[in-house]
């Protein structure tokens, strides 16, 4: 019979070749090992992470001897006592947690309509525009963006110049808590949109039409149908934004004017300024614990959202 070339795509031929190679290089009786082989890089990474955590855990129980600048030989819980008693750490921890929560809520509120429009618009041009605007910031790192805000929001920046035109004295827009939160929201927005997009596009448009035909105006369609169905996406996006904000370093460092430290900045200071690896490790572990607790709490209350991996998906 005559062969029809189109019936056998090139990709199949390539896969045939690969299969033949695998069969040759990896005899079938070793087949059971293949899943483990594929898992190996991940296991290695996690393993290294665990080793690192164990070391950090070890150092967290040692104190700095300022006469030799080495960690003590004996174990002590002094660092933990310091972490829980010194007002500095309570202040910084509260600021980070509160900031992360505010940033998460504001980001989700802003990301939702953006994502909804991007997913639902019948206008291909608009969708492309929204997507481009979404991805562009990814090519500009966090630090560069923060410096951008320094230029725009500074005393002699664009915003203050514009205010000056209408006779307003320069305002201190930078180097305060709102500036840090603003920078974080702007940084997190694309992450949130990306996490929300699959969840929103998974909501059949027909459901919204159904709600409308059943007597719901758009507000009630949104609150009674879209929002509950978008919950997995909101939870997923919320978790990502929450953890990234909670552990952020650059925004508080650059936009905070030195007095708006988050936990990561305090950890940095211990490692790199006072050379106190012990206290630094303690703070790092406490941050991991606080973050995990927070994530656990969110999952317990709202489910894991799109981050939940289950075999059966409905």
């Amino acid at each position: 019979m005559r062969q029809t070339p189109a019936a056998y795509p090139l990709t199949w031929r390539i896969m045939d070749g690969l299969e033949a190679f695998v069969a040759f290089a990896w005899p079938a009786r070793l087949g059971a090992a293949i899943p483990w082989l594929m898992l190996a890089p991940a296991l290695l990474l996690v393993g290294l992470l665990v080793i690192g955590l164990v070391q950090i855990g070890d150092v967290s129980f040692r104190t700095l001897d300022p006469s030799t600048y080495r960690m003590s030989e004996n174990y002590t819980i002094a660092n933990y006592q310091r972490a829980f008693t010194e007002s500095l750490f309570a202040t910084v921890a509260t600021r980070s947690l509160l900031g992360a929560l505010i940033v998460t809520v504001v980001t989700l509120v802003l990301a939702f309509p953006y994502t909804y429009l991007m997913v639902r618009t019948p206008n291909a041009m608009l969708r492309k525009l929204l997507l481009t605007a979404l991805f562009l910031p990814f090519f500009i790192g966090q630090v560069v963006r923060a410096y951008g805000w320094l230029i725009i929001l500074g005393n002699q920046g664009m915003v203050n110049e514009a205010l000056g035109l209408v006779g307003v004295e320069p305002l201190r827009l930078l180097y305060n808590y709102p500036a840090v939160l603003f920078g974080l929201v702007q940084y997190m927005l694309p992450f949130a949109v990306l996490m929300l997009a699959p969840a929103l596009s998974a909501i059949p448009e027909e459901l919204e039409a159904a709600a409308e035909s059943l007597g719901a105006n758009w507000v009630r369609t949104f609150t009674h149908v879209v929002l509950p169905l978008a919950r997995p996406g909101l939870v997923g996006a919320g978790l990502v934004v929450l953890t990234l904000s909670l552990t952020d370093f650059a925004m508080p460092a650059i936009l905070g004017g030195g007095s708006q430290d988050f936990i990561a900045n305090a950890i940095y200071d211990q490692f790199f300024r006072t050379s106190d690896q012990g206290l630094g490790s303690t703070l790092a572990l406490l941050l991991v614990a606080a973050g995990s607790l927070l994530v656990g709490l969110v999952i317990a209350l709202f489910g894991a959202g799109t981050l939940a991996l289950s075999r059966v998906r409905r």
Binding site: L88, R95, D261, D269
Partner: peptide, 12 residues
């Protein structure tokens, strides 16, 4: 280390 903590505690 101590001076640093004191200063930070005041400033933060």
């Amino acid at each position: 280390s101590e001076w640093f903590s004191k200063f930070k505690a005041i400033m933060q």
